[in-house]
């Protein structure tokens, strides 16, 4: 319990640093005045001045930061400003993100689940039968998948499954995008598979090598000598101590996928966070960029916090070592 508390304190500190840095870095890019000028270049001078006032850019830096953090916590992420001359309109940033975030979460979650669901049994089995024909075959397939860039897989899928065989729609730019997996699976299936394939290869390789090491351990011989069936020895005795590396990498991947699936989102026109982030940078909507960066960072940090806790759930030795220290 004490361990979780100290971790939580650390978590808050990291969150603070992350928000401050992203706020500061965005400021560094253009300076106060330029940001608004870039956001709405064709607006009248009076409108620009009004927007500056609204965002609070005329206030001192730390006051701006404090206000921004305060608003961020309450869910007010600022506005997206568009228009020219005297006609400047604004849409809340949060509204756009709320529409896009579930899509990205779904994409990431299902891609990970699919990858793990295939990689875990495959990794365990190839380790158990290391050196067999099946193992060598799966090794070769894994290297092939690793060498193949994701966008190639995506394009192949789009070309064959989508265009030639007409099994699934290749473009997901429908509005409004159905957020429930039951309704949108046909748009999400190919993006999910494209993202999962490379992960399967990585996870299988990782788990296989860790499993092979674990299977050499004395306690595996003990389990065998107890008359425990092979399947139980593999999944109950060997898998848990072998899964720490896999967990680490999977945790990092989930974080990376949330905003990093830009290419796949673009190919299949999936309305996710990655595409939104890229678009916000191109259209210089710095409040949107800032919010997305912070959100992704928070997501990353929280996720790795849970991974950290999971380590000690998986291996009691970590739990007790920390408790002593």
């Amino acid at each position: 319990m004490r361990m979780i508390f100290t971790k939580l304190v650390r978590l808050v500190v990291v969150l603070f640093v992350v928000t401050f840095l992203s706020f500061w870095f965005i400021k560094l890019i253009g300076g106060n005045n330029d940001l608004v000028a870039k956001m709405i270049p064709f607006a009248s001078i009076e409108e620009k001045e009004r927007v500056r006032e609204e965002i609070g850019l005329n206030k001192p830096f730390f006051v701006q930061y404090r206000n921004w953090i305060g608003n961020f916590v309450t869910g007010d992420l600022g506005q997206i400003y568009t228009g020219s001359g005297a006609n400047v309109a604004s849409v809340p940033v949060s509204e756009t993100i709320v529409k896009r975030l579930p899509v990205s979460l779904e994409l990431m979650l299902y891609a990970q689940l699919l990858a793990l669901a295939i990689a875990i049994p495959l990794g365990v089995f190839t380790a158990y039968r290391a050196g067999s024909k099946f193992d060598r075959g799966s090794n070769m397939a894994a290297f092939g998948l690793l060498a193949l860039p994701q966008f190639v897989v995506a394009l192949l899928l789009a070309t064959y499954v989508g265009a030639k065989w007409q099994l699934l729609p290749t473009q997901a730019n429908v509005d409004p995008f159905p957020l429930s997996p039951a309704d949108n699976w046909q748009y999400m299936l190919m993006p999910i598979i494209s993202l999962a394939l490379a992960q399967i290869a990585i996870y299988t390789r990782l788990l296989r090598s860790d499993m092979i090491a674990t299977l050499q351990e004395d306690f595996i011989t003990t389990a065998k000598a107890k008359g425990i069936p092979a399947k139980r020895v593999l999944f109950r005795h060997a898998l848990r101590p072998s899964s720490l590396t896999l967990l680490t990498v999977a945790g990092l991947n989930v974080g990376a996928l949330i905003g990093g699936a830009v290419v796949i989102e673009r190919i299949f026109q999936v309305p996710g966070i990655g595409g939104l982030l890229a678009a916000s940078i191109l259209s210089q909507q710095y409040l949107l960029t800032q919010s997305l960066v912070v959100l992704i960072a928070i997501f990353y940090i929280l996720l790795n916090f849970f991974v950290d806790i999971l380590y000690s759930v998986l291996d009691p030795r970590i739990r007790h070592a920390r408790a002593v220290a």
């Binding site: 306690f219 003990t222 389990a223 069936p229 848990r240 101590p241 291996d315 030795r317």
Partner: peptide, 22 residues
């Protein structure tokens, strides 16, 4: 497997590594 554990079993050399740590 029907014999292992129930009819014949083994005590190993190194108790530090012979028990499942998790």
């Amino acid at each position: 497997r029907a014999l292992w554990g129930s009819q014949m079993s083994m005590v190993f050399q190194d108790p530090m590594t012979s028990l499942n740590p998790v």
